[in-house]
Design a protein around this nucleic acid. Structure first.
Lengths: 242, 242
DNA sequence: CAAAAATAATCGGTCTGACCACTTGACCAA
DNA sequence: TTGGTCAAGTGGTCAGACCGATTATTTTTG
């Protein structure tokens, strides 16, 4: 080994990339460039192999690699097709389209259940985390800071307490919808310090119900919080004119 | 050969799954069970192929699939080794992504409500869109195509019929969670054509309830669909996946 | 004439067997 | 010790063949 004295030159290890990877890269690039449309059929294996100047087994290895990656779909007896939706960034398309009231309505539904689940299944540590998020929010509000981050943390903590990371993902996704232009315009008009009191009160109710392990009350409290939030937004919605 | 007279029975039971997937499953299971330690070397390709009773090209296809998944590492001229980073890397990935069963549970909750809302509020055009998505799925299934895209379209169409784009976003987000590594490994074991019948039947129930404007039945039918989906996944969840 | 059944052309799935290039370690020589 | 040689083992790649599934076409049938 050459661990004793370092070589002066940092020469890159020769990388004889295996054939199937080279082929896969080439096809992947073609798909990425849009040279072959999603859903389109590729040439038959035999033709592809001939065009690429490789044997069919090697081409097949590349195809299987791309299939595992989810880029291709092989239909026996029919052909090889580019996957229609490799799932990337489609959600982002309508991300900007969700209006504040739609989001609140969805949260009413989802976070209400989250609160109930948290009350039912949350571990002691998770409940502690919720309480901590709540006191953090109170502190932030007292200091007249922007309480948005702390508010988010409270709701996410409840979602975490459900023990279901998919629900946590959903709550985060919905919360982060307020990056949208509509939301922004609306929040510009909101007076946070003024509503901080109400918000913390409503949170308080949710927190108590969860700590009391009362799923029904937790759900009700969370829904009420959402109703009030909607009302607060509505007020400024009308004032804004549109 | 037995090409002479075929039995009338339509025996779907005998694994029509492609060979490389069966082999990959077997090896993945071995690794998951810890039968081969991380860093350990597997038998030579020729030996493995003989032991498994398959040809070397087929075995190689399976090895490449597992290599793309990151479970194996192939060193030219040396041998095939179980990835060491498997534990860490996989745990990290899993931490970020939501597991299949968490997603199904979340969908049970959310899409159930979506179905109810769609039955209550969906416009005629939106309901038509749902029905079209359903027939599309039926057609795809009949052609033994991979019905995933059409399946997704059905569920998204229902979410759209709620008239709440935030809910649509949520449904899409959850659906697209299956790009995760855990999901992928699981789906490699699934056989879509076999379950297409059940899926379309369950969808049928959901569709009927929505078209009948019956929110309660729609919710129940959708929840039942999710329960069944979970059951289908569970069947293949006997691995040491975690 | 239209629907259904048989047919033929494609296409992917798999196998056999072979040869090549690389890695490894044992052995030998300077 | 150092360096080289060599052989065995291993993965990489290939060519050709046959099978079964799919699909479009043609033929048959009502």
């Amino acid at each position: 080994m050459l661990t004793a004295s370092q070589p002066r030159v940092r020469l890159q290890a020769v990388e004889p990339r295996r054939l199937y990877r080279q082929i896969a890269d080439q096809i992947r690039t073609l798909i990425g460039k849009g040279a072959v449309a999603p859903g389109a059929r590729l040439p038959a294996e035999r033709d592809l192999a001939r065009q690429l100047g490789v044997s069919r087994p090697s081409l097949r290895e590349a195809l299987i690699a791309l299939e595992v990656e989810g880029l291709l779909e092989v239909r026996v007896g029919s052909g090889i097709y580019v996957s229609r939706a490799d799932g990337r960034g489609r959600a982002a398309e309508i991300a900007g389209a969700s209006g504040p009231f739609e989001v609140i309505r969805a949260r009413w539904m989802i976070e209400g259940e989250c609160a109930a689940l948290a009350a039912k299944n949350g571990t002691a540590a998770q409940l502690r985390a919720i309480r901590k998020a709540h006191t953090d929010l109170q502190k932030e509000a007292k200091r007249h800071h922007n309480p948005l981050d702390a508010d988010r943390a409270f709701h996410v903590a409840i979602a975490q307490a459900t023990g279901n990371s998919a629900l946590e993902l959903v709550v985060q996704t919905l919360w982060d919808q307020r990056v949208g232009p509509l939301y922004r315009a609306l929040e510009m008009k909101l007076e946070y310090p003024a509503m901080a009191r109400e918000t913390t009160d409503e949170h308080e109710a949710v927190l108590s119900a969860i700590l009391a392990r009362d799923p029904g009350s937790a759900r009700t409290a969370m829904r009420r919080h959402m109703d009030m939030t909607k009302k607060r937004y509505s007020k400024d919605w009308k004032e804004a004119g549109k």
